[in-house]
Design a protein around this nucleic acid. Structure first.
Lengths: 198, 198
DNA sequence: TCCCCGCCACTACGGCTGTAGTGGCCTCTG
DNA sequence: CAGAGGCCACTACAGCCGTAGTGGCGGGGA
C-alpha cells in the first residue's frame, strides 16, 4: 500500500537530496546529510544509493519526474496558429514563473547538476533527456506558430529561458523575482522577435 | 622581483583554485588540492587563505580581475550611433566567443561561484560587483545606440548572454561551441530585437 | 508451513578536509 | 650589525565522507 500519504522511500530520499543540493550545494550532498534531511535513520541513503554517483542519478531522475509532471503545456494535442502562440506565451511564462517560485528548489538543483554533468558523462545523458523533452515540445509549437526555422528557434527559446532562470536565481543583481506579468511580457516580446522579424 | 615570469603566490594559487573549480567543481576545491594543482608544497594554500571562505573570495577576486582585463569593449571613450552598435555586436560576440573557448575555465568557475553565492552573502557582493561592470557598460552603449530603455535593455542583454554562456557550457545538447560567425549573427539578431522593435 | 529473498538499521574503516600551531629563513629597518 | 616581522614548509588533530559489510525482520512463493 504505497500511496501519496506515505511516499515510498526512494522518492522521499530523492526529494531530500534535491532539497539539500538546492540549499547547500553539491558539496553539502552527503549520504548522512540526506538521511537527516529525510528524517530517516542513518544508513538509509547509503543503502539505497551505494555510491555517490548513484545518489546523483537518483536526484536527477527525480528532478526530471517532478519537472515534467502536471505541466499545462505538456498536455494532449497541440493547437495551431494564434492559439499555439498563445499557449507558448502563457505556458512558457507560467513555467518560468513556477520555476522561480514554488519550483525554485528544483531549479537550483537542476542548475547545480547541469554544471556537474559537465564532468560526468552518465549525468549528461540524463540531463540531455530532460532537455530534449522541452526542446521537442518547443519545436512542435514553434512550427505551428509559423516559425521558418522551428529547431533553431526552439534552441534560441530554450537558451533564452536558461538565461532567465539562471539570471533570476544566481545572476548578479537579482533583487526580486519577476512578476507573472513581467514574465509574460518578456516572453511575448522574445517570441515576437523570433517569429515576426521581417 | 615579482614579474610576469614568476607570478606572485596569491595569483598562482588563485589561478590554480579557478582551474580546480572548473574541472572538479566546488567539491573538488580543497586547500591541499590547490597546493598540488599549483605545484606548491603542501600547506601553501592553507597559509594564504586560512579558511575556506577566504579561498573562495580569493578565487572570485581573481576571476573578476581576469574577466575584465584587456577586453577591447572596455576601452576608452564610447562612440555613438551606428558605431556604438557595431561595437556592441562585435565586442559582445567576441566576449562570448572567448568566454566559451580560451576562457571556458573562467566561465565555468564563474557559474559555479554564482550558484554558491546563492548561499553566501559575502560572495554575492563580489559577484554583483563583477556583474555591475558589464551592466553599466551595456547600459551606456545601449543608450548611445538609441535604446528607449537602456537599463531595461541592458538587463535583457545580460540575461541573454547568461543564457548563451550557461547553455553552451552546461546546457543540454550543447554538442559543439558556436562559431564566431554564429555568435555574431545571434548577437546582432538579438540586439535588433531589442532596438528595432516596432 | 517453511524457506528464501529483499529491505533495512547499524557498524567499521581508511582516507580526506578544514583549521590552527610551530619553528625556520629571509629581508628590510634602524 | 642586530633585531623584528613576515612568509613559508611542515605538522597536528578532530571531524566527516564514501563505501562496504553484517545480521535481523517480514512478506511471498513453493
Amino acid at each position: 500500500m504505497i500511496g501519496s500519504m506515505t511516499p515510498h522511500r526512494p522518492t522521499l530520499i530523492a526529494d531530500a537530496a534535491i532539497a539539500l543540493i538546492a540549499e547547500r550545494g553539491l558539496r553539502g550532498l552527503t549520504h548522512r546529510a540526506v538521511d537527516e534531511e529525510a528524517g530517516l535513520p542513518a544508513g538509509s541513503t547509503s543503502n539505497l544509493a551505494r555510491t555517490r554517483a548513484a545518489l546523483l542519478d537518483l536526484a536527477l531522475a527525480r528532478i526530471v519526474e517532478r519537472e515534467t509532471e502536471g505541466s499545462p503545456v505538456m498536455a494532449d494535442a497541440l493547437p495551431d496558429g494564434a492559439e499555439a502562440r498563445e499557449l507558448l506565451v502563457h505556458g512558457g511564462a507560467d513555467l518560468l514563473h513556477r520555476a522561480l517560485t514554488v519550483g525554485r528548489t528544483l531549479t537550483l538543483a537542476r542548475l547545480e547538476l547541469a554544471l556537474e554533468a559537465t564532468r560526468r558523462p552518465e549525468l549528461r545523458a540524463g540531463y540531455d533527456r530532460l532537455g530534449a523533452r522541452f526542446t521537442d515540445l518547443a519545436t512542435a509549437l514553434l512550427a505551428r506558430c509559423g516559425s521558418a526555422d522551428a529547431p533553431g528557434d526552439a534552441r534560441r527559446l530554450i537558451r533564452w529561458c536558461d538565461g532567465v532562470l539562471f539570471n533570476s536565481t544566481a545572476g548578479s543583481g537579482h533583487d526580486r523575482v519577476p512578476t507573472p506579468e513581467e514574465l509574460r511580457g518578456e516572453t511575448a516580446r522574445y517570441l515576437a522577435a523570433l517569429l515576426d522579424h521581417d
